[in-house]
Computed example of a mutant assay.
Amino acid sequence: MRFSKSLIILALSASLAACGDSDNNEVEVTDPVMPVMSYEFTVQVTNLTNAQPLSPIAAIAHSEGMLWQIGEPASAALELMAEGGDNSELLATDFAMASSSAESPLPPGEQVTLMLSTEQLDSLKISLATMLVNTNDAFTGLNAIDVSSLAVNESLSRTSFAYDAGTEANSEAQGTIPGPADSGEGYNEMRDDINRVAMHPGVVSQDDGLTNSVLTSQHKFDNPVARITITRTQ
C-alpha cells in the first residue's frame, strides 16, 4: 500500500502534537505525607494517707532533666508547689515535652488518672509531684521514671515516699500550713530551713508534745504515701 507524501506529513505532525500535549500535562509526583506517631500514657495516683489531701498533681513527660535531687536545693518551681500546692511552674518547666494536671486536690483514699501524649518515645520519662497540704513543705512524687520500653497496654507500678523541700521550717504552727487543718499561708519566698531536698521526718503534732502545732496525730503519715500506676495506652 502506498501513502502520499502529504498523508505522511500529516501523520508525523499529529504524532508530534500529541507528544507536546503529553509533556504539558505531566502530573507532578510528590512524596507521601507520613502520619505523626503519637504515644499516650495514663498516670493513676492513689492517696494512701489518712488525713493528708494531695494538691493537684502535676505530671510531665520528658527525656532529660529531673524535678528534684536529694541533697540539692529545691528549684523555685518545686518550692512553689511544695509550700502552697501551686503546680503551674512545674508544668511549664523548660524540659517538659508534655504535661498534665489534676483539676483539684486528691483526698485520702481516693485516686485520680491523668493522661500524657507525646510524639517521642526514645528515652521517654515521666515525672510527677504533689504537696501533702497539711504540712509546711512536704511533697511526694516520682522523678524521671523511664517508660520508653513499655509496650501498648503494659503498666508499671511504683509507691512514693514523702520528701521535705527544705524551704520552710516544719513548725506546724498556726498560719503556716495551707491545708484544711489550718488554712494558713502557702508559698513564702523566704527560705528558713536547710535549703536542700531530703526525706521528710514526719509530722510531730500537738498530741505528741509539739504544743504550738495545729496538727493532730491523724495528720501523721507512714511511707509510702501514694501509689502510682503508669500505663501505655497507645
Results as ranks from 00 to 15, higher is better:
3 F>C: 08
205 S>V: 01
193 D>P: 09
184 G>K: 10
10 L>S: 12
159 T>C: 02
211 T>H: 13
155 S>L: 00
183 S>I: 08
193 D>C: 02
232 R>C: 03
161 F>P: 01
66 M>L: 11
87 N>P: 15
177 I>P: 12
174 Q>A: 15
179 G>H: 05
184 G>Q: 10
185 E>K: 14
106 L>C: 00
230 I>G: 03
18 A>F: 13
228 I>R: 02
55 S>Y: 01
6 S>V: 00
205 S>I: 01
54 L>D: 00
5 K>M: 08
209 G>M: 05
92 A>H: 04
143 N>C: 05
87 N>E: 11
156 L>N: 02
58 A>F: 03
178 P>K: 03
58 A>K: 06
46 T>F: 11
22 S>P: 05
42 T>Q: 05
144 A>G: 14
117 S>T: 14
226 A>N: 07
210 L>E: 10
99 S>F: 06
24 N>K: 10
213 S>F: 04
94 D>L: 04
47 N>M: 12
190 M>N: 14
38 S>E: 15
133 V>M: 13
21 D>S: 07
62 H>N: 09
52 Q>H: 07
213 S>M: 03
132 L>N: 11
113 T>L: 05
14 A>H: 04
223 N>M: 02
134 N>C: 13
19 C>F: 11
69 Q>R: 11
154 E>V: 06
70 I>E: 15
182 D>H: 09
140 T>Q: 06
213 S>Q: 07
40 E>D: 15
165 A>Q: 09
49 T>S: 15
189 E>C: 01
231 T>Y: 11
35 P>N: 07
36 V>R: 05
177 I>R: 12
81 M>H: 07
88 S>Y: 06
8 I>N: 10
108 P>E: 00
58 A>L: 00
3 F>P: 02
161 F>D: 15
32 P>M: 01
34 M>Q: 13
90 L>S: 00
189 E>A: 01
156 L>K: 06
234 Q>K: 10
113 T>W: 00
42 T>I: 04
4 S>I: 03
134 N>Y: 04
98 A>P: 01
165 A>R: 03
171 S>D: 14
231 T>L: 09
21 D>I: 05
183 S>H: 05
20 G>N: 13
8 I>C: 10
133 V>A: 04
43 V>N: 12
227 R>F: 08
106 L>M: 04
126 I>S: 04
121 L>C: 05
169 A>E: 11
214 V>F: 04
224 P>H: 07
45 V>P: 06
175 G>S: 09
35 P>W: 07
60 I>T: 11
31 D>A: 14
24 N>P: 01
178 P>C: 11
119 E>Q: 13
27 V>K: 13
140 T>A: 13
168 E>L: 09
108 P>M: 04
40 E>A: 15
219 H>F: 07
113 T>D: 07
143 N>P: 05
90 L>D: 01
148 S>L: 08
169 A>L: 13
192 D>A: 02
68 W>C: 10
199 M>I: 14
234 Q>M: 14
21 D>G: 08
178 P>H: 07
125 K>W: 04
169 A>R: 10
144 A>V: 01
144 A>F: 06
169 A>S: 13
163 Y>V: 12
37 M>S: 14
189 E>L: 01
73 P>S: 12
75 S>I: 06
175 G>I: 09
134 N>T: 10
214 V>W: 06
59 A>N: 04
186 G>L: 09
104 S>Y: 09
208 D>R: 08
